[in-house]
Each structure stands twice: as structure tokens, then as C-alpha cells.
């Protein structure tokens, strides 16, 4: 009978001796049901598609297919401009897109001006005049509670509709516009829901976009961008330009209002998180301008 030293316990400072024949042969990993890390296939990098804004593409490499992308920022920060640019680029590529509009806030004229092919855009307007609302009793209540209940109803509609759209498949972009929802309502979306959306969209070539005031999907999102209007620089660059952050009203009172024109907003886009590059992104940021539809007319 032969003996062999098969293990050393440094912590105990002694050698443990086993009978070599009594020690079972280590089973291959595949037989034990665990795949060794060396055999794990590396998840392929998602295909990136243009966002429709060159600066954003430089910053992020585009929008990833099969992933959840969050675009967040306060009001007038250019979120909708970015969304419409992405929809425009997708529809011009020949893809069909869906917009789940939680607040029924889409302006068709803006969408058309951004170049969105409207016949390729499925617009779902969540709101109050749904069948559920129709059957509900109309009782007077305070406005805050009513608003909160409406937000919850809209949110429920958004989630159910998104589930259906992702299950149906075939859309190039599915966008969830939660930008006008109260943050407390948006934060009530369980993380499991985002995880489900992410799993549903992963094997597809759909870009799942969400617009919201703050990031809410946690680690389920592959790309998080924060937009912010450049303070005081989003108005016309003409000599009559006014920076509301810097100049008090009294100083520009001599400028007649009809001589002013909102022609562009300068936007700063910051990359908050990207799981695509497998490294910390730091504080990468770019700036771009969104122009109003009538600015080109004026320039022309």
C-alpha cells in the first residue's frame, strides 16, 4: 500500500497524509455540472448603432443593441432631443420603433422635424383615458393623491405595454419615456422588472432606451448617460443672447422680447456608467447643441 502527500495545511503547520487509493479521483468539471471558467465563452460585445448625434457616438460608441440604455436629466436638458435623434436614425435605417409615452408628451411636429419617419414609429400613449379609468368612479379627491394615482396607473400601463412589445420583438428601438413621471413613482419600479426587461431584450437586436429624471434601473442598464443643459448658454448666440444664470433681468430689460429667439440649447452629456468597455469610464463628457426647428429657417 503506497502513501502520498496530497495536501498541506500551512495554517495548521502539519502535513496531512492520505491513503492514495482512498482518495477519489477529482471529477472533471463538466461531469460535476460546473463549467470551468476557462471554457466559459466570452459574451460578445453588443452591436452598436448610431444614436443620431455625432458627439454622443464619440462618447459612447453609439447605442448598444440588446441592452438597456438610460438617458437621464432634468427638464430642458435635451433628453427628448436625443431620443428623437435615436428614433430618427433608427427609422431612417429602415427599422420599426416603438415609443411608450408614459406622459403622452410627444410633440408630433418635433418628431417630424427631427427626421423621424412617423409611419415607422409605434406611439403608445399611456394616460388617463384608458378602459380602467373609464370604469372607475369619479370621486373628488385632493390633487396630490389623484396625481400620484395617475402616475401609478400610467406606470403600470408602461410596464405591461413594454413587456408585450419586448415579447413581440422585431423593433429596432423600444423607448420608454418616463421623463415626466414623479421620481418617487419611477423609483417604485422593482429591480426585478428591469432585470426582466434586460433578459428579454438581450437575445434580440432591440435597443431599449429609457428617459427618466434619475437613473433607476441600477445594474440592469448597460449604458447610463446624464444630460444637462449648459447653464446660461442654451439660448441664441446672437448679440442679443441672454444667459439667465448670469445676467439679472433688469440688465436686459431694454432688449425687446420679440427680437429674441430660442434657436439652440447647448447640452452637456456625461457618461455615468458603461458596462460595455469593462473599465471605469471616469468622467467622460461631451457637449453638443440641439437646434430648434425654426433656427435653420432663420439662418436660411
Amino acid at each position: 500500500m503506497s502513501t502520498a502527500v496530497v495536501s498541506t495545511s500551512a495554517a495548521l503547520g502539519r502535513h496531512i497524509v492520505f491513503d492514495a487509493e482512498a482518495v477519489p479521483e477529482p471529477r472533471p468539471f463538466s461531469m460535476s455540472g460546473v463549467t470551468p471558467a476557462s471554457r466559459l465563452s466570452v459574451r460578445p460585445a453588443p452591436e452598436m448603432v448610431p444614436s443620431g448625434i455625432a458627439a454622443i457616438d464619440e462618447l459612447t460608441g453609439g447605442l448598444p443593441r440588446g441592452c438597456l440604455t438610460e438617458i437621464c436629466g432634468p427638464a430642458s436638458s435635451g433628453r427628448t432631443a436625443l431620443l428623437l435623434a435615436a428614433l430618427s436614425a433608427a427609422t431612417q435605417r429602415g427599422e420599426f420603433c416603438a415609443l411608450v409615452d408614459a406622459s403622452d408628451a410627444l410633440d408630433p411636429q418635433s418628431a417630424a422635424a427631427a427626421g423621424v419617419q412617423l409611419e415607422r414609429l409605434l406611439w403608445i400613449r399611456c394616460g388617463e383615458s384608458s378602459p380602467q379609468k373609464h370604469f372607475s368612479t369619479r370621486q373628488k379627491s385632493d390633487s396630490t393623491r389623484k396625481e400620484g394615482r395617475n402616475a401609478e396607473n400610467r406606470l403600470e400601463q408602461v410596464l405591461r405595454v413594454t413587456d408585450l412589445l419586448l415579447e413581440s420583438g422585431g423593433f429596432g428601438v423600444v423607448a420608454l419615456d418616463l421623463a415626466d413621471l414623479p421620481p418617487q413613482a419611477a423609483r417604485r419600479i422593482p429591480l426585478a422588472t428591469w432585470f426582466r426587461f434586460r433578459r428579454a431584450v438581450e437575445p434580440t437586436s432591440t435597443v431599449l432606451l429609457t428617459l427618466e429624471p434619475q437613473p433607476i434601473a441600477g445594474s440592469c442598464s448597460s449604458l447610463v448617460m446624464k444630460l444637462q443643459a449648459d447653464s446660461g448658454c442654451y439660448l441664441s448666440k446672437s448679440p442679443l443672447a441672454f444667459s439667465p444664470g448670469r445676467i439679472p433681468i433688469t440688465e436686459i430689460s431694454h432688449v425687446p422680447s420679440h427680437a429674441q429667439l430660442l434657436d439652440e440649447i447647448e447640452i452637456k452629456a456625461e457618461l455615468i456608467r458603461s458596462r460595455l468597455e469593462r473599465k471605469p469610464v471616469g468622467s467622460a463628457a461631451v457637449a453638443f447643441a440641439s437646434r430648434t426647428a425654426w433656427a435653420d429657417v432663420k439662418a436660411g
Binding site: D57, A81, A105, I267, S290
Partner: peptide
């Protein structure tokens, strides 16, 4: 793809979000 798409949409359009 990049050339054509970026050339098509060089600048974003400021959108109006409506209250309905």
C-alpha cells in the same frame, strides 16, 4: 454606416414635450 448616418443627423433638434 457611420459616415452616412452621422452625415444625415449632424445636429439634434430641440423637442417640445407637450402637457396634455
Amino acid at each position: 454606416p457611420w459616415l452616412t448616418d452621422t452625415a444625415e443627423t449632424k445636429s439634434a433638434i430641440t423637442a417640445l414635450r407637450l402637457f396634455r
